[in-house]
Amino acid sequence: MRGVKGLLWPVFLVARKDLLVEFRSREVVIGSAVFAVTLVVIFNFALNITPETVDILAPGVLWAAFSFAGVLAMSRAFVTEKDQGSLEGLLLTPVSRDSIYFGKMLALFIFMTAVEAALLPVFAVLFDFSAFSPTLVGAVLLATLGFAAVGTLFSAVAVNTRSREIMLPILFFPVVSPVIIGAVEATTGAIGAGVSAAGPGRWLQLMAVFDAVFLVLCPWLFSLIMEE
């Protein structure tokens, strides 16, 4: 019991600290939200989305916007800490690296979910679909968890490289492509007419398995990376 508390309490502290810092600086959430809206507006005009094509195009547009906005958010997860030197201070505390990883991941998950929750109704109005479908909400939560799990790790890797802005998307997108594909397919199933419920369910399962694997793998790799 003491072990679980010893792991969870620092997770809560790190996440709460990140949320407080974000509340004051508003660097991540506003930047990501503006970027996602801009992407959707550009896609809307570039692809000439009509009521006939919305079922086919909207899921792709939605997840392209969420994915790129997510990368923007995760790129800040360690950059500010590194630039301020506070990452070194954090690593000098006697808490386990797992706790630091899960704290940073939880904060990133909350930032990304907040941006998506704010934007989903906007997209729903723009593309005329229901934002409150359980399948769609499930897809958003599972995909965001996968993004946050992998993104926290690669953000920590990229921050120590010279070309960190380029390195993060190069590392991130190939690994999370199963999640993006799963999210697009599940969203198509959720908003598309005449698609059976069994289709999106399989994609949700795929994302759940991906999340479970990477929630075990990423903290372990994070611990190795953080001890040079």
């Binding site: 600290k17 810092v21 030197g85 506070s86 201070g89």
Partner: peptide, 8 residues
């Protein structure tokens, strides 16, 4: 370098 959170 001071290892601090600038926004705290």
């Amino acid at each position: 370098q001071p290892m601090l959170y600038q926004d705290l």
